[in-house]
């Protein structure tokens, strides 16, 4: 934990905290999935949870979403403790979780449908976000007619359309091809800039985490713990296509790999 202290001194942490987890533990029988996780997620920024497989990053995300109850500890969103899923958070799934029997329009509107928004209203909102994610013209298409990347755009539009303050993304780009993923990452940067939302982003790609994050929490397995918090600052203001050539970007990627490589089996 001393490293976290060190980073707190080195870089200023914004004091406006949207989501925080305090001493989260999660055990399955005798297996300890998470141990004493304490993390803070600044408002309006993107925080990545990065780590090798088995470090509990997805478990932590699902606890924040309210899909899993923690064994002990507390999650607060805007100071209010989380007891289950709530309208302040929206989830983007790794495998998209689209309804195969529903059109793109109904899929995007599904979150609003469950909230009891009237049909015409929710379809207007959905149509707007379908346009925003670049799927105009596909409103009446079914998921099986779309490519993987387009399906995830539907999942993203669904999460955006409920207008939650916190967006939880569980390895959202891992099931799409490399080129689509790059496009997604660039779009995500724009999204963080334009929407005043808090993003919590789970990934196993070091490059992806460094590229898109304001803050990276590095988790290590056995027992699961936060090893480091990194806040890349130098290249955040640069344009999307020059980040990958920035020396600080490359250094951080190398550093993270150096600290993770011994944990990769």
């Amino acid at each position: 934990m001393s490293q976290i202290e060190a980073f707190k001194h080195a870089q200023p942490v914004p004091d406006d905290i949207a989501v925080s987890t305090r001493n989260i533990c999660k055990t399955y029988g005798t297996v300890e999935a998470l141990k004493d996780m304490t993390l803070e997620f600044p408002r309006g920024q993107l925080t990545s949870l990065l780590g090798p497989s088995g470090c509990g990053k997805t478990t932590l995300l699902k606890i924040i979403a309210g899909l899993l109850p923690p064994t002990s500890g507390e999650v607060t969103v805007n100071g209010k403790p989380v007891t289950g899923p709530g309208p302040d958070r929206a989830f983007v799934f790794q495998d998209f979780a689209l309804l195969p029997w529903a059109t793109v329009l109904r899929n995007v509107a599904f979150g609003l449908e469950l909230r009891g928004v009237a049909r015409s209203e929710r379809e207007d909102i959905a149509a707007r976000y379908i346009r925003e994610v670049g799927l105009s013209g596909f409103e009446q298409a079914y998921p099986h007619e779309l490519s993987g990347g387009m399906r995830q755009r539907v999942g993203l539009a669904r999460a955006l359309s409920v207008d939650a303050q916190v967006l939880l993304m569980d390895e959202p780009f891992s099931a799409v091809d490399e080129q689509t993923r790059r496009k997604f990452q660039e779009d995500l940067l724009a999204l963080v800039q334009n929407e005043n939302k808090t993003f919590i982003f789970v990934t196993h790609s070091i490059e992806e985490a460094v590229y898109v994050s304001d803050q990276i929490a590095i988790l290590l397995p056995r027992p699961s713990r936060v090893s480091e918090i990194i806040r890349p600052t130098g290249f955040r203001q640069k344009s999307a296509d020059s980040i990958r050539r920035d020396p600080e970007y490359l250094d951080i990627v190398d550093d993270i790999w150096a600290s993770l490589r011994s944990y990769v089996e």
Partner: peptide, 27 residues
């Protein structure tokens, strides 16, 4: 039924009855 479809319904606040008629039955 795909677990994430169930989690999706829950995370968007579906009641058990809604989840049954809108997701489980169709899936």
């Amino acid at each position: 039924i795909n677990r994430s479809l169930v989690e999706m319904a829950r995370s968007f606040g579906a009641s058990p009855v809604e989840a049954f008629f809108k997701v489980y039955l169709w899936a």
